[in-house]
């Protein structure tokens, strides 16, 4: 028997559907635009991106958010493809988080 993918939640029981809208944050819009460019430029393709999300551990997936999953999946994929260096990325992310500002970019 084939295990279900973590993303394959159609038909599962679940609670109430959230009715409240939530506006996209500015960085989320930037992120979608940057990811669109990665596809347009042929750096990544949709199916390999989807695969990185499907490979997420079940518990991680269950607790993840829509934009968080996209970001983590893309980072994993870019590291896997050698576009990003994992250590360089981690260091940069820590520096930005420690600074707590948006000024450096």
């Amino acid at each position: 028997m084939v295990d279900k993918l973590v993303t394959d939640i159609g038909g599962e029981p679940a609670g109430a559907v959230p009715q409240e809208d939530r506006d996209q944050l500015f960085w989320e819009k930037q992120m979608i635009a940057a990811f669109n460019l990665l596809q347009v430029k042929g750096v990544v393709v949709t199916d390999e991106f989807r695969r990185t999300v499907e490979e997420m551990p079940a518990e991680y997936y269950a607790n993840s958010t829509f934009y968080g999953r996209r970001l983590d999946g893309m980072i994993r994929l870019l590291i896997e493809k050698g576009v990003l260096d994992a250590d360089t990325f981690d260091k940069r992310a820590q520096e930005i988080l420690a600074a707590g500002t948006r000024d450096h970019v």
Binding site: Q30, Y67, L71, I75, L78, I96, R102, H104
Partner: peptide, 14 residues
Amino acid sequence: LTEGEARFLALKSL
């Protein structure tokens, strides 16, 4: 600034 945004900004800058 959240961790998610910081991680995106790191990705974008690189």
